[in-house]
Amino acid sequence: MANIYSILLTVVTILAGLIWWYDARVNKPQRLAKITAEEERLQETLSEDAQQRIAPQGRVAEFCQSVFPILFVILILRSFLYEPFRIPSASMMPTMLDGDFILVEKFAYSLRDPIWRHELIEMGQAERGDIAVFKFPPQPSVDFIKRIVGVPGDRIIYRNKTLYLEPACVNNQQECPQIQVVEKNIEPQEEVYFNGSRPLERYSEQLGHVSHDILVDPSVSPRVSYYYQQQDRTTAVDEWVVPDGHYFVMGDNRDNSEDSRYWGFVPEENLVGRAVFIWMSFEFDQSSNRFLPSWIPSGIRWHRLGTVE
């Protein structure tokens, strides 16, 4: 849906620009010639209202002239700088909640054209701990948001709800990193999160230079039988080695997230950008006895506005 909007915005902007350009290059000289001839006949300078009556600009061309600069600015901002997204699920709790509206930094990793998404300029590399928006590999028309856990070459193990990481061994390293437990420390909960009626446990976790919170549902058993299996490697069922040009992502709500554990890796070309700011956060908890539809916000979570980690 997001890509369809990008295509539509691009097409409409180009169409408006072409109509405006054609009017300026072809129709406008004709209108000016008509006005000049009338002024010579009357031997006086016509007012703007009179000029408009004698040689009016077409409504379509006038509309395109008015909206094209606005559309062009929106297209540039949305395609190359920042794009708004809405969080539609609970997979990134507690970092992001259903109803959060975020800004995604489009130039964080690369600049791509808005239609075919060909890379124009490489800007940087995704890092562990980044919250990334990407095209869902099994269905590229859908945008997903998850946290990057593994970068190319990393060995990832998720066993008994504990994350293990063996960072990639870079060629110039004299000693390769060893596998390490990604420590999670229990956090006091000012706000309790639930999966249905079941309370979730909250932990803090450190990935690279990013410290963030995760949620774990102690009542849910690991769904190992559903884990994605690498066909070209003899790894354990709960172990993955991130290929070159790919990333391993997980949701912060570990037991309620459809992520790389179940469908595999995110290709680098699928990355859209990095989530950097929550600019609005709505509550959608209309009571059953209210006549308003469920999609109308019931309140604003002002305390959630700001940067994300």
Rank of each mutant, 00 (worst) to 15 (best):
A16V: 02
S294I: 15
G150F: 10
K28I: 09
F194V: 11
Q51G: 15
S281A: 12
S47I: 09
Q286P: 13
E187F: 14
D238A: 14
I156R: 03
Q52N: 11
V224R: 01
I296H: 07
V60N: 04
E38G: 15
F134P: 06
M250R: 03
R304D: 04
D213K: 01
N172W: 03
R112S: 13
I131R: 08
A236N: 01
C169G: 13
F72I: 03
M1N: 03
K28N: 12
A132P: 06
A16E: 02
S260M: 03
A50G: 14
N256S: 10
G150W: 10
C64Y: 06
M96H: 08
G245D: 10
G251C: 02
F248K: 01
A236L: 14
I19Y: 04
N172T: 14
R53C: 10
I131G: 09
T36Y: 08
G99S: 01
R202D: 11
F136W: 13
E183I: 06
R304W: 02
V272C: 04
E183R: 13
W279R: 00
P293A: 09
Q286W: 12
R198T: 15
V192E: 01
T45W: 06
R59F: 12
D143L: 06
G58Q: 11
I74T: 11
R202A: 15
M93Q: 00
M93R: 01
R78L: 09
W263P: 12
R128G: 14
V272I: 08
Y227P: 00
L15H: 07
F134L: 09
P69G: 11
D154R: 10
R155Y: 05
I148A: 02
N185M: 07
I214F: 07
G99F: 07
R41E: 06
A24P: 05
E268I: 14
Q139F: 08
Y109I: 08
E187L: 09
Q230R: 04
W302N: 06
G196N: 02
S91D: 05
L18Q: 03
V104A: 00
S66C: 12
L97R: 04
G58A: 15
P138K: 08
V181R: 12
S221R: 05
R41Y: 09
S89W: 00
G299F: 15
V151L: 06
A108G: 07
S6Y: 15
D255P: 09
A132M: 14
D100H: 00
I14P: 10
M93H: 02
G245T: 11
T10I: 06
P88E: 09
W21N: 06
Y203I: 08
V249R: 00
E183P: 08
F144P: 03
C169K: 13
L75H: 13
L81H: 05
E48A: 15
Y164E: 02
F85C: 00
M93D: 08
I87N: 00
P56A: 15
L207N: 09
I115D: 02
I54M: 07
L215I: 12
L8C: 07
G251L: 00
K161H: 13
S197V: 11
P56H: 01
F80N: 07
E127Q: 15
R261H: 13
